[in-house]
Design a protein around this nucleic acid. Structure first.
Lengths: 343, 343
DNA sequence: TTGTAGGCGTTATCAG
DNA sequence: CTGATAACGCCTACAA
């Protein structure tokens, strides 16, 4: 593999000139440029960005840590950060934490060793040491899908509490009195926890007693949702509606309910969270809380690049999450539902 | 940021020893190890993997180029390569080509400049110069979601032709005579093209004339599938079944058909391709051709690492793709369908 | 506009 | 088991 040295010799110039030619062509004379160009062709020169990074102490690479790329919401946000990085001619190294803190810890270590210029993290543990150290050492990073609204950490997210509130309120407005919740394990994601808070508050505001019997925490998966709904439906007093803390859980719940012979949405109303692409293509189309995942990724990257350029004060961007009413929610059963003829 | 030099001085040893301590601790005396350890703590030493890569000419990084991470199938395969890379303590830089060849070209250039040790590519143009050059220059790379079965390129994929054949045969076996196809644009993905070939061959083998009227090429998206199915349904002689070249298209088609007032699957049978996670959770659950995406990613990474260690002869791994029959396919309408009471 | 030369943090070779 | 020292490929003053 040929180097600048080879090119320089062949072109009869110094390596400094070759370097200039690459980084700011207009500072080198036309004739020289041509010589260099020719020389590069001849020895099939390939620029070594790693060597450059070594010399400049900038890798032009950022790290992105998410729980798992197989969740479409994280995939969308990843796309957002990638597109934004691409514009800045930056690359992104991806890491999956699988909702495990030690893995997250390991990832930031490895990525920092790789000299990434900054980090975007969808963290699994807001209180952990990882973020604290990053902050202390003044390393540029942005939280994504974050729940923090103030303080020293820069972050982008949505108001999960409000999302949970809206989802529940929608169900209450339809007439439901017994509303269950299927939540991602609180130990693993505080987003789920915040959504649950919104749920509780909504119940409270409308004078519906909270019943911890109809909350089930589970893993964030289709199967998790399916099993959870079956558990709820097996209760003596099963809920007539459930709020699921993400769309996977909701689709799983639809499946589970159906397997138990229920008609949807008539026998059970379901609302999700995320609005992943397929949510509106499912039958019945899923009522859900929409999160602008792609946009959030874009903004996180944008914020990170700003932060990398100059250490401004921390900012938190909370984006709007909105309730999207579709077909998976309706009035409670036995209330003269227009769709009651189905039974 | 402190360097090995600092640690060495503090510990009263040479940088060489520090380096040894890091890379093969057992070659340095216990007492020395402790000194170094202490020194590292004191100056909060952080290893610089980039400098290492510079010295060793190995970045311990691979590049992964896919069309788009928002397609769950590619997300799954990405997870597969990442998990495999993780085991080898390798990082992966992700790039989206968006099915655009120039983008793919640009990506391999950038990634090579970044000195990735190898590349995994889900290519958009098998015949393009990119792969040819990679091959000529003997750069390690593996094709993923590949259609190639022989030749100089190493690759992993499934038999798309066979998948298309199976899907169509299933429909024929159910009694369908008029079977349309909604395909991803052939110009963009030869996988789609191969699936179409399987479709044609199946038709032929069962003596059903091919009608190009009921093939529509579109973009790989939910909306694409929806629009396409509407086009087909508007024909004088609409199909009673459609084979969609991926699951997104199939879900889109379900939506479109439903919007036109059809009952599924009774009025229209639909089969997809991929078996993405949500496919079995949709209602009616999607009949589809399953591709082991995660597995394929894992194998591709495995193959790449082998290739990086020693330039063995090229291999092509074709994995099994199987027909998964679920609820979205049934006998043609007007044939005494058991579900006919729905109308 | 171009050249000279030192430096970036690690590894690797060769002595000791 | 440890130390000295020359790479590795590029950038960047500083000088010319």
């Amino acid at each position: 593999m040929s180097t600048m040295m080879d090119v320089a010799k062949l072109a009869g110039v110094s390596t400094a000139t070759v370097s200039r030619f690459i980084n700011s062509p207009d500072t080198v004379r036309e004739a020289t440029r041509e010589k260099i160009n020719r020389a590069m062709k001849i020895c099939n020169y390939k620029y070594n960005a790693l060597a450059r990074g070594f010399a400049t102490k900038k890798s032009n690479t950022i790290g992105l840590i998410i729980p798992t790329i197989s969740n479409p919401v994280f995939a969308d946000s990843t796309q957002g950060v990638q597109d934004c990085a691409d514009k800045r001619k930056m690359q992104v190294i991806l890491g999956n934490s699988y909702y495990r803190y030690e893995q997250e810890e390991k990832l930031v270590k490895t990525l920092r060793e790789k000299q990434v210029d900054g980090l975007i993290i969808t963290t699994t543990n807001l209180k952990g040491n990882v973020l604290k150290i990053l902050l202390e050492e003044n390393f540029p990073f942005i939280l994504l899908f974050s729940t923090v609204k103030r303080g020293p950490l820069s972050a982008v997210g949505v108001d999960n509490y409000r999302g949970g509130y809206l989802a529940t309120e929608h169900l209450i407005t339809l007439g439901h009195k017994r509303i269950g919740m299927i939540a991602g394990s609180f130990a693993i994601t505080d987003r789920s926890y915040h959504r649950w808070h919104g749920y509780r508050q909504s119940l409270k505001n409308y004078g519906i007693p909270y019943d911890k019997e109809i909350l089930v925490q589970t893993e964030y998966s289709l199967a998790g949702g399916r099993d959870a709904v079956k558990k709820l439906l097996a209760l003596k007093k099963p809920p007539t509606a459930v709020f699921c803390s993400n769309d996977y859980l909701a689709l799983g719940a639809m499946k589970g309910a159906r397997e138990m012979g229920l008609q949807l949405p008539d026998d059970l109303s379901i609302v999700g969270f995320d609005d992943m692409q397929t949510a509106s293509y499912v039958i019945p189309a899923l009522t859900t809380i929409q999160q602008p995942a792609y946009k959030m990724g874009e903004i996180a990257a944008e914020l990170l690049f700003q932060r990398m350029e100059s250490a401004a004060k921390p900012v938190q961007k909370m984006l709007e999450s909105t309730l999207i009413i579709r077909e998976s929610t309706t009035i409670p059963p036995g209330r003269g539902n227009h769709a009651a003829h189905n039974k």
